[in-house]
Every structure is written in C-alpha cells, then in structure tokens.
Nucleic acid binder design. Structure first.
Length: 855
RNA sequence: GCCCACUUGGCGGAAUAGGUAGACGCAAGGGACUUAAAAUCCCUUGUCUGUAAAGACGUCCCGGUUCGAGUCCGGGAGUGGGCACCA
C-alpha cells in the first residue's frame, strides 16, 4: 500500500507505468474481440513534437484506450511520413545527409511521443523512407502504370526557381512556393500523372456513404471534385482568313439556357487557337508571354482585372446569326472544360466584368422575379427566373430552358449535354532527391518500361551532392545509367521522385503487416480495413484524404484490393492556438518575455511596450509556440493530456493558457491527496456505507449517472464534456464527510471512477488503481456499464410557465397524468396569485416536463 | 470574388427530442488558515432595478413558425478557415 501524504511525482509514476505496459505488451493486437483500427495521421519527423501533435495523439489515445476497455481488439500503430523537403533543406543548410537527419529526428520524436504514454503498438512502426516501404510502393506504382492509371504528359507546372522543382497548384500559396516562398513561374514539363479524374464520379458519389465523416469535409471534397452538368457546343468561326485549319470552337457551358444573352467567346491563352494565332501576331505573342510570367494565385486573379485580347475573329451565334467576337482572356482556364467559354455578361459575374471593360453588350435573358421594370443590371444576375428575349425559350424556367436548348443543340447537331469536373489529374512527379524513386526506365530504343520486380526496391544513391542545385538524382554521376535486364540495351532511370502524398495515401495498409511482403488481398487487410477511426487535422480535408480514397479505388478497379474506402470514420481536430504579441517595432515577442504591470505589457529585457494581438495557430514565426517537451517535463503527460481534453471541444480550436495547465495539475493533486487519505483493507470491507449527510443509494445513483454521461460523451467525441462529467462526480465524492474510509461501496465507486479517468490520464489512473489495492493493471479493466434502474428518477422538477415564461418549479412524482398535473398546477398558491387578474385561455401540459398556461 | 465553418457571462465552454440557459473549468472579488506570502479550504459572481423580498431583460442583429426557440425557417452583420476565375 502506498504511504500517506507523499508528493505526486509525475516523472517517476509515468516512467514506471509506461514500462509496465510495455513489459506486458498491453497494446499489441490480441486477436480476440471485434477489431477496431484507430489511426492518427502520422507525423513528418521534424525532430520535435509540437502542441498540435500532443492534441491529435491524445485524442486518438483516449479513443484507443476507451475502445480497448469496451472489449474491442484495438490496433493503434504509429509511423513516420519521412520523405520530404525539410530533410533536403537541412542537407543543404547543415551539410547533414537527409537519411541521417531523418533518422535522428525520428529517434528524438519517438522518445518524446513515448513520454506522452500513448498506447501505440510500436511493433508495427513504419517509416516511408525505408527500403521495405519503398519496395512495396514501387510495386503499387508499377501496378497502376501497367493499368494505364499512371501516365506521362506535358503540362504547365508551377516552377519554383529556388527549389528547382515543380509544385502542385495546391502547394502554391499567394503565387509563391509554399515552402520556399519564391515567386512561381509557369514552365512546361513532361511529368507523371495519376488518373484521379477517371474516378471523379465514384469519389463524388460515395461521399454519401461515408456516414461517419464530418459534413464539412465531405462538402469540401464535393466542391473540389466539382461536378458541373452543362452542354458542349461547337461554334463556327466566320470571317476567318487568319487561321484556316481551325473552323470551329468547342465551348463548355453550365448555362446553355442563357445562350440568347451571349455577346462574346473567350478562350484560354494556352488554347490551341491562341497558340496558332501567336505565331502570326506579335500582339498575341506578347499577350501570352505576359500571361506566362504573371502567374499568381487563382484567388488573386479572381480579384484582379479581367484582361483580354480581341483576335479579330468571330463565331456565329447558333440561333441569332449574329457574329460574336473571340477574345483571348486571362480568366479562362485551359484545364477546365474545353478551355473556351461563351460569355453571357448579364448572368455571369466574370463575363459581366469583362463586358464592362471591353464595352460588350449586356443582354438580360432571365428576369428577376422581384423586379418588374427593366432597370440596367449593376451586377450579373445568377438566380432563377423566367426566360426573356430568348426566342423559343421565352417564359420557360431556367430548368425547362436547359432541357429545351440542349434538345435544340442535338437536333441541329451542334452540341449535347455534358458533365465536367473541376478535379484535375494528380501530378506525382517531384524533381527532388528525398522521395521514393519512380521505378521506370527509358530504354535507348525509346521504350518506357517499369523496372523488373526482382530489381525492387530501386533505392536512392547515398552519395549525393546538393551543391549544384537542381535535381540531385539528375546530376548524380552514375545512378541514372542502367541497362534493360531483358534486352541488355542501355537505359536511363527516371530521375523524378514521387510526391510524398503518394507515400501517405496507402500507409495505413502497410501498418497491418508491416514486416512481411505486402498482400493487398490478405485476410488481415479485410479484417482491419477500412480504418474504423481516422483522426487528423482539417487541413488535410481535401488532398491527403482524397488521394487516399482515389488510390484504393484505383487498386480496386484493377482487382488488386477488395476495399472501396480507406477510412470509415473521420474526425478532424481543431488547431492549438496561443496569444501573439508584438512590440512597438511590429516585431513578434515571446509570451514568456512579457511582464504585466498595472495592465501595461512590457518586454522583460528591453522594457519596450508590447501589445497583445490575438490568439493564432501556434507557429515559430509568430513566436507563440509552447514546447510540449518542457510542459511534459514540468507538469507530466497526464496533466498535459487533461488540459488538451478539457474546455475546448476537440473539433474546435484550443487556446493554450498557463492557468489552464495549472488548473489541470491542481485537479490531479486534489484527487491524489484524497486517495492517499483512504485506507482500504482488502477482504475486510465494511459493507454499510455511512455518511454524515448522504444515503449510499444517492451515491450509487450519482455514480451510474456519471457512467452514463461519460460513456455517452466519449462515444460522441465530446471529450471536454467527459472531463467535466468526471470532475462533477469527483466534486461530489471529494465533498463527502466520511465516517468510515474502509467501505466496500466507496471502494467500488472510486474504482469505477478511476477506470473512467483511465483513457484521459492513464498513468495517474494506474497509480490510483494501485492505491485502491488492486493488483491488476487498470489498462486491462473493462469499461463500467450504467444500470438503467439507477437512472430512473422517481421525482422530477416540473416547470410551470405562464405565456411561455418560467414562473415556478415544483417537485412532482414521475408519471402523473395530464389531469393530475392540471389540478396540481391550478391549486399551486404562487400560480393562483399570478392568475388573479387573468383568464386562462389554454393549458398545455407535457407530462414529466412542463405546463404552460396561456392567459 | 467564391466556398465552408463559427458567433451563448469577464474568458473556454455546457444544454437528449424545441421544454429550468450558463453544467464543468478559468479569471475576479470576499472570507478562513498564516507573523506574512504561496498553497489549500469556504462563499459570491449573466445584466439591470431594488435595502430586501422580488421583478424585468438576456444565447450576434432583424423577422417568422410555435403554447414555448440557444435549438427550426428566412434575411442580415461580424469573426475565422479554405480556394484551382470551374463558365
């Protein structure tokens, strides 16, 4: 038994129990019970965990421990997303090899993660830069290559001149590289693409079946895939004596109903016609050249002025026989639809802005229902209404007109219904060293072939020189030179490596049998997949999660795997935020360097005045980082965990505060002191619980209510409320005036409470469990069940309202009839007084809840 | 510009099914203990009126549905996040 009144030594306690769990291999798969795969997004090994990690891994661990207690066979692995840019940057800046840098970081982060006491099955650890992982990934690549789901094409790429590499569009922020910050230029490159657009429809449709995904993530993916139902339409070019071999332009429009309002056609600067025109025209050539340089984010472009260049060409309006001018315009994207649009200024805002600028006709063809007179439009009208000025479409609704006009297109043989997606194929090529090599060779006779299986994995060369810049593999003296094993012909290796999103698109499959050869059709994968609960940041709502969904579908379409979706349940946690401060020179200041005197904030060292800005996501640049390693050292993992879980709902942002972490520590010490005052003698309990003020039945009732609440809260991811419910009940037992501290009921109730705090503060709970005299491990205890009988109230507080406002509360037995209640209400003295000058018009009675008198 | 989310005391937040708004915590104030401080414990704390009893108001704003709205519907404002001009 633990000695009394000793200090709670979190370092000793936490290390001890982590060791015990480890020795007993508690967190390995048991192969009994219903399988439950809990996975948190694996980290990039930056070298130090941050508060965001602490939050997400705490959330995942609460779930894993809770499900284990509930009898599930929990699989909870952890690994490393270990390829990527920072290792290469470190190599350049600090002359350390990426492999070594990454390995050191993993070692450090693993130690830090272990200090948090998370219930990982470390046996299954994986790292995406290891040869075993690369090998399996290259096999997957070859499968997709052979099925034509990976292909090479020339395409505009975002060229980062500092990194000498291509960035995906979504990796470009404000026209700059998301890591280098360098302005991005357009460059045409031949690159590897994954055919995600082939799966646009099923990826979209199956979102409806992801019942355990947050609605906002599904909406984001839906918008990202962006299905548009419209029409494809061919327009004849007239008065064409410039380009003779192009006789018509194909446009895609989602609003074919507005065709009678069309006043121009706009094509993308890289449309075939634009390119042809540029060869014969200096003006066009200059316009396109400017467009190539002016790569800025699409968002900025949205706000930027619409620019266009008249081509001196016209198309013929298919129904009005009038010429419509063709413009090359900066707001038309070649990657969407056909790269050409038909401009209807009255009913599309971009077309409206363009028409205003170039003085084109704005002809309204849909009447707004509210407005009667024909007032000139101030902006485009995109809503519903009846068609006007539209010949045979007049008086139809938008919906009817769409159907009719497509009909007419088909009769005339100029167009038809068409569906387009805004989703683009996934560019997976990276001109970098620290990534998975693409297992392809280019033979001297021109053949492009996958590497033979027996040669896998193709590993990176270790002797690498970063001093030249550019693509290190391309620059390596020997690595790329090889021969074709079948023919003996000379060949060159592909020197692009894979986007790290590829690595993270299937890693959850690798965990399952991390050491053996990957068999995607194995029973183990069928047993554990899809992942029952995936936890991670909302920032991955689209890319990572959509790519993962795609990869499974691609493999499943070629019969390589038998699951359709990677993640059954998804939970996205909020960011960890902290106050930011700036001094008078507008420089960020560390919060710990600030002193407060009479409500004036000053810098501890410089003495300069400092002002609080706001609470923002923790980031190094804003100096509002709190280091979890020192927090765990000073306060302990359990205190950090309790703080992470209290107060803020997991899906919302959490504000770091010192008083919050202090409060969590006080709670632990308070409970600790209480438990140390107890003195249970096993097998010698007093059966009758005696309190000065309470009946034991109340105590048991409250305990069952607590079980009910905490269980429900955990099931609903309301971890903050679960902590509150546990504190609420602890406030109750802490306040009891005990006559006897060796009581069986008390022992039982406290044991149950300790089991329930287990997933939240696991080391602390083990320690309390020991104080209670148990010789088992708390982590192995089953979750308690609340007994319905104790949740039934015999009396309820019944509310009496007058005109919907609460007037008084009476305590009534449960189950009274409406008539009985009405009598009681009308006989109530307070109510009688209030009714003296009023006539009752109506009485509404909801038994066991409320009565409302309408007067 | 477009899309999404959010808005409840001094603060973080709670509130099955529309039925006692403010659980739990933080901060603040008062008290006890102490030579003193820290720690701990006890009390108070949505706003307004009132000595009090009590009453009125109150979940971003405006309107609606309802006997009854934090909760449902329509419109608006503010804050945060995302974005690839998606025709």
């Amino acid at each position: 038994m633990t000695s009394h009144n000793k200090q709670y030594d979190h370092k000793k306690v936490e290390a001890f129990w982590q060791d015990e769990w480890n020795k007993k291999k508690l967190f390995s798969v048991k192969n009994q019970g219903e399988p439950y795969y809990v996975l948190e997004m694996f980290p990039y090994p930056s070298g130090r965990i941050h508060m965001g990690h602490v939050r997400v891994y705490t959330l995942g661990d609460v779930l894993a421990r809770y499900k284990r207690a509930k009898g599930f066979d929990v699989f909870h692995p952890m690994g490393w997303d270990s390829f990527g840019m920072p290792a290469e940057n470190a190599a350049i800046e600090n002359a350390i090899h990426p492999k070594e840098w990454t390995k050191n970081n993993i070692d450090n982060m693993k130690t830090q993660l272990k200090s948090m006491g998370i219930s990982y099955d470390w046996k299954s650890e994986i790292s995406t830069c290891e040869p075993e992982y690369i090998k399996e990934q290259q096999k997957i690549f070859i499968k997709l290559f052979n099925a034509n789901l990976i292909y090479k094409k020339e395409s505009w790429a975002n060229w980062d001149p500092v990194e000498n590499s291509v960035l995906a569009n979504e990796q470009v922020i404000d026209g700059k590289g998301w890591r280098s910050g360098a302005p991005i230029e357009k460059k045409l490159l031949n690159q590897w693409f994954l055919a995600i657009t082939k799966f646009a429809k099923p990826l979209l449709d199956n979102l409806d079946n992801l019942k355990e995904w947050p609605e906002n993530v599904k909406i984001m993916q839906k918008n990202w895939i962006g299905e548009s139902i419209g029409a494809k339409l061919s327009l004849k070019i007239i008065k064409n004596n410039i380009i003779l071999d192009i006789k018509e332009i194909e446009v895609f429009t989602t609003r074919p109903d507005t065709i009678f309002g069309a006043s121009f056609v706009a094509i993308a600067p890289d449309h075939t016609l634009s390119e042809k025109l540029s060869k014969g025209s200096k003006v066009v050539e200059k316009f396109i050249k400017e467009w190539k340089k002016s790569f800025i984010s699409e968002e900025d472009l949205d706000k930027a002025p619409k620019n266009g260049l008249f081509t001196n060409l016209y198309v013929l309006h298919p129904f009005l026989d009038i010429p419509l001018p063709i413009y090359i315009a900066n707001f038309v994207l070649s990657s969407y639809g056909t790269g050409a649009v038909i401009g209807v200024p009255a009913h599309d805002q971009r077309d409206f802005d363009f028409a205003k600028k170039y003085d084109l006709e704005i002809k309204q063809v849909i009447r707004e229902p509210q407005i009667k007179k024909n007032v000139p439009l101030k902006k485009a009208y995109t809503g519903n209404g009846l068609l006007v000025n539209s010949n045979f479409l007049n008086n139809m609704t938008v919906k009817e007109a769409k159907i009719e006009i497509i009909n007419r297109f088909e009769i005339k043989g100029i167009g038809k219904k068409d569906i387009k997606y805004r989703l683009r194929d996934w560019c997976a090529s990276r001109q970098r060293y620290w990534g998975c090599p693409i297992p392809i060779i280019y033979r001297e006779d021109g053949a492009v072939l996958p590497v033979e299986q027996s040669e896998l994995p193709i590993e990176l060369p270790t002797d690498i020189d970063f001093s030249k810049g550019g693509n290190p593999l391309e620059n390596h003296p020997t690595w790329k030179y090889t021969t074709c094993k079948k023919t003996g012909l000379k060949a060159l290796r592909e020197t692009d490596t894979l986007d790290t999103f590829f690595d993270s698109s299937w890693y959850y499959l690798r965990f399952i049998n991390s050491k053996d050869e990957l068999n995607l059709k194995s029973d183990l994968i069928k047993k554990w997949c899809p992942v029952h609960q995936y936890v991670g940041g909302i920032e991955h709502a689209v890319l990572h999660l959509l790519y993962s969904r795609f990869l499974i579908r691609a493999l499943s379409s070629i019969n390589e795997i038998e699951i359709q979706e990677p993640f059954k349940g998804l939970f996205c946690q909020g960011m960890v935020c902290h106050k930011t401060y700036k001094d008078e020179e507008n420089k960020w200041v560390f919060p710990e360097d600030i002193v407060k005197k009479e409500n004036i904030l000053t810098h501890k060292i410089t003495g300069k005045k400092v002002s609080a800005i706001k609470s923002e996501k923790m980031s190094k640049s804003k100096k509002n980082i709190v280091d979890p390693v020192s927090i765990i050292k000073d306060y302990g993992a359990d205190t950090a965990r309790i703080f992470m879980l209290s107060d803020s709902p997991p899906e919302r942002n959490l504000d770091w505060s010192n008083s919050g972490i202090e409060g969590s520590r006080k709670f632990i010490i308070k409970i600790w002191n209480f438990f140390n005052k107890l003195n249970f003698k096993e097998n010698n309990y007093d059966k009758n619980l005696e309190f000065e003020d309470y009946k034991s039945s109340d105590f048991i009732k409250k305990m069952h209510l607590c079980i009910y609440k905490v269980t429900k809260n955990l099931d609903n991811f309301q971890y903050n409320v679960a902590v509150a419910s546990l504190r609420e009940f602890s406030n109750y037992f802490l306040s009891l005036k005990l006559n006897n501290n060796n009581n069986e009921i008390l022992h039982k109730v406290l044991s149950i409470w300790v089991i329930m705090i287990g997933p939240i503060a696991p080391h602390f709970a083990e320690e309390l469990w020991k104080i209670l005299g148990h010789e088992t491990l708390l982590a192995e205890q089953p979750w308690p069940k609340s007994d319905e009988r104790f949740l039934q109230e015999t009396n309820i507080n019944f509310i009496i309202q007058i005109n919907g406002k609460k007037k008084c509360v009476v305590n009534l037995p449960k189950g009274l009839t409406k008539d009985q209640i009405e009598n009681i209400v009308l006989e109530n003295d307070d109510i009688k007084k209030m009714l003296i000058n009023n006539n009752i018009k109506k009485i509404i009675i909801i038994p066991d809840r409320v009565a409302n008198l309408v007067v």
